[in-house]
Design a protein around this nucleic acid. Sequence first.
DNA 1: CCATTATTGCTATGTATGATAGCATAATGT
DNA 2: ACATTATGCTATCATACATAGCAATAATGG
Lengths: 136, 136
Amino acid sequence: MTDPLAHQPGYALRRAANAMMGELATRLAPLSLRVSEASILTLVEQCKDVSSSEIGRMLDIKRANMAPLLARLEVAGLIRRQPIDRKSQAIVLTPAGEDRLAAVQRVINQFERELLARVPEAHREHLLPALNALWP
Amino acid sequence: MTDPLAHQPGYALRRAANAMMGELATRLAPLSLRVSEASILTLVEQCKDVSSSEIGRMLDIKRANMAPLLARLEVAGLIRRQPIDRKSQAIVLTPAGEDRLAAVQRVINQFERELLARVPEAHREHLLPALNALWP
DNA sequence: CCATTATTGCTATGTATGATAGCATAATGT
DNA sequence: ACATTATGCTATCATACATAGCAATAATGG
């Protein structure tokens, strides 16, 4: 039976996102990174001297949840903390972190390519702007 | 700072789905239903005499996770179980379940309308087919 | 017909994610 | 200077989703 909920954009959005996240998680697993950790690495490279709080605000991760994520990345030797003032710290990539990020980017670029390839050509260019209209 | 990951369809998909799910959960909360429970009610009405396993397969919810979901709906008096054979049971809506579902449908219809309204007109009709190409 | 296999519904359990509350410290602004 | 806000963190809880295993039943194929 064909899914009777598939005509609802909200439901389709949920199913598409779940399928996508599962697949991406599988592909990042060999790098010992979860999706959120990979996005942190990506962000940290692009934004010089971001603090934990700033990362959280940009990725919509609560401060309380940033702590264990960064701890994991630090233990793995991928990031280190650099004091900004006596309270804040900049998160920066270690050399190992940069290497890992390069691998992440290969995985993600390939993944995004395949993702778009699955969308019929007529709709392809509309996907990103449509999605970006749906979050604040 | 604008989010430097927003150009990736996969990331935009995740953020859009998260924002959407949060909003929908908020709107369903007054009905004492979670999103997954609301979708079960919807499905049960449209498919006569579906079993727990069939619901799970259609909504991509594991059998093990269906059990507590259905238990909650049953305790709330919204569904009841009707024997099919000595092993399987059909899940059917009670009268209270039908009433609750009507309320759910009002919430969801309004929600889906607003969701689509946020998408610029040029992209609107492409969203659903693009999303439905992304899950199996 | 009977033995094997598959399916159903369920419990128990683990893990990832997201949220809240609270806390000590430090920075900010009026 | 003092009240307010921000930071980084711990502890804790709820939800979602996954696996393993189990007892009963159904379905299948030699």
